[in-house]
Amino acid sequence: MKTRFYSIFFALLASLIGGINVTAAADLQTQLERFFHARFPDKQTSLTVVVKTPQEQWPQCEAPLLALSNNTRVWGNVSVSVRCGEQRRFIQTEVQVTGNYLVSARPLRRGVTLTAADLRQTTGRLDLLPPRALLLPKDAMGAVLLRDLPPGQPLTSAMLRRAWVVKSGQTVQVLAQGVGFSINSEGKAMGNAAAGQSVRIRMASGQIVNGVAGEDGVIYIAQ
Rank of each mutant, 00 (worst) to 15 (best):
G76K: 05
V82H: 03
S69K: 11
L47S: 09
T23H: 12
G214N: 10
S157R: 13
L146G: 06
F10I: 14
Q44A: 14
T171D: 08
E215H: 00
Q153N: 07
A116F: 03
A193P: 03
L28Y: 07
G19A: 15
L155I: 14
P154K: 04
R202S: 03
G206S: 01
A63M: 06
I219M: 05
E186G: 05
R106K: 15
Q153P: 00
W58Q: 10
I219L: 10
G214Y: 00
L28P: 12
S168K: 15
R89Q: 15
G142F: 00
L160T: 03
W58F: 06
R83C: 02
Y220P: 00
Q173I: 11
Q223V: 06
P154C: 08
G191I: 05
A213F: 03
Q173P: 00
V74G: 01
G206T: 02
Q87K: 15
L108G: 01
Q57M: 07
L65E: 14
S79M: 11
L13E: 02
L66Y: 02
I17C: 13
A189Q: 03
E86V: 07
L28R: 08
S46T: 15
A176N: 10
A158S: 14
V172A: 06
L47N: 07
V50R: 12
A63R: 07
G187T: 08
L146D: 00
L119C: 04
V172G: 07
W75E: 12
V82E: 03
R125C: 04
P137Y: 02
T123M: 13
T113P: 00
G206P: 05
D127W: 09
V218Q: 10
R88P: 01
R132W: 07
P130S: 13
V103M: 00
Q92W: 02
N210C: 02
G196S: 04
P154S: 08
R73M: 06
D118Y: 08
T45R: 10
V174E: 07
A176E: 15
L145I: 02
D127Y: 02
V165Q: 01
L128T: 14
I208Y: 01
L135N: 01
W75R: 09
A67R: 09
L66E: 02
V82S: 03
A140C: 08
R202V: 15
H37L: 14
S168R: 13
R120L: 12
T156A: 08
A14D: 01
P54A: 13
Q55Y: 05
V51R: 06
G180L: 06
G214L: 11
N100R: 15
Q60C: 03
E86R: 10
L136Q: 12
L149F: 01
L149W: 04
N192F: 04
A195Q: 11
R202D: 01
P130T: 12
A189M: 07
G76Q: 08
A195V: 01
V165H: 02
G18R: 04
N184K: 14
Q223I: 10
R125K: 13
C84R: 05
E86N: 13
A25R: 09
P131S: 11
G124H: 06
L128S: 12
L136V: 13
W58V: 05
T156V: 10
Q121V: 05
N21K: 11
